[in-house]
Nucleic acid binder design. Structure first.
Lengths: 151, 151
DNA sequence: CGTTACTCTACCGAGTCTGTAGACATAGAT
DNA sequence: ATCTATGTCTACAGACTCGGTAGAGTAACG
């Protein structure tokens, strides 16, 4: 499981939209600027997220993007799978399960890979955008306390 | 963490050498044939494994490869890191830890990635070639029983 | 009817991955 | 000595992926 630049940008953008969830539409331009993502590149990513129904958009002046569902209902694992493909170190869960049953000499190897995939998905499939933003806030306030106390 | 063809071949070859550990040298050709790996490609992989001191070799007639240490002392995670790079979904463990501390807006995201990496390495860093071959044997005998009982 | 946004498609350069080719070095058998 | 079977080393080629850019097109709204 490898997170590409695309995947990272997608998660940052969604996280941004989650923060703005109650405030309506956000323009690509604003996300790109705040998150330091090349605007035209982000554009493509948002289209993919739209096709996968994570977000909706409106055109024209005062247009922009917003989450289609509340942050607590968007799972990080689903986003990663969409952008970067399966989580498993080799193939996807279905292919791995198949090879565990059929691989003539090394079924145990694929079984090991399946364990790894399950461990990874156990984490990211139980983390939502809401969790992510809570985590961000906690880490940032902890950091702020640390800086203050060191002054 | 993605396993490349190279990584898969490396693990299969080492697993093969682990099986033959008590029997001395094995030729590239024999490994390639048994494991269905392109011979010249396997050659390169074995050189890498040799430079990383997982295996040793002897040249000439009756030459070949063998594990440098017993199968129980060779850790799958080390092999994967050598061939396919770091296990983390983004960067390596050191980089992740750094970004958790410095990322201005999304430290929690990298913290999440670090959790995933730790879960993956917990598994593959506690699996040796010996474990792997035991797993293979168990899976294969279980499969054999199943076939027999279904006749 | 013009401006501001999103939409769609094409493309490009750099890098990576899988695999092939071939010349070379060395150990052992005859 | 020399032949032969083996490992060693370097180069490279074709396909693919990734990150990013470009530009024309379309919808909403004032």
């Amino acid at each position: 499981m490898k997170i590409s630049r695309r995947g990272l940008y997608a998660l940052k953008a969604l996280s941004h939209l989650a923060d703005a969830y109650t405030q309506g539409l956000v323009k690509i331009h604003d996300i790109a600027e705040a998150e330091e993502i090349p605007e035209k590149f982000l554009e493509q990513i948002l289209v993919a997220l739209k096709n996968a129904r994570f977000v909706t958009s409106e055109r024209g002046r005062e247009g922009g993007y917003r989450l289609r569902r509340p942050p607590a209902e968007i799972v990080v694992g689903d986003v990663i799978r969409l952008i970067d493909g399966p989580l498993a170190p080799f193939g996807d869960a279905v292919e791995l399960a198949h090879r565990v049953r059929t691989e003539p000499r090394h079924p145990g190897l694929f079984d090991l890979f399946l364990d790894v995939r399950n461990a990874a998905s156990a984490i990211i499939d139980h983390t939502t955008l809401q969790d992510l933003n809570q985590r961000n806030r906690r880490a940032l306030t902890a950091r702020a306390r640390k800086i203050k106390s060191s002054v």
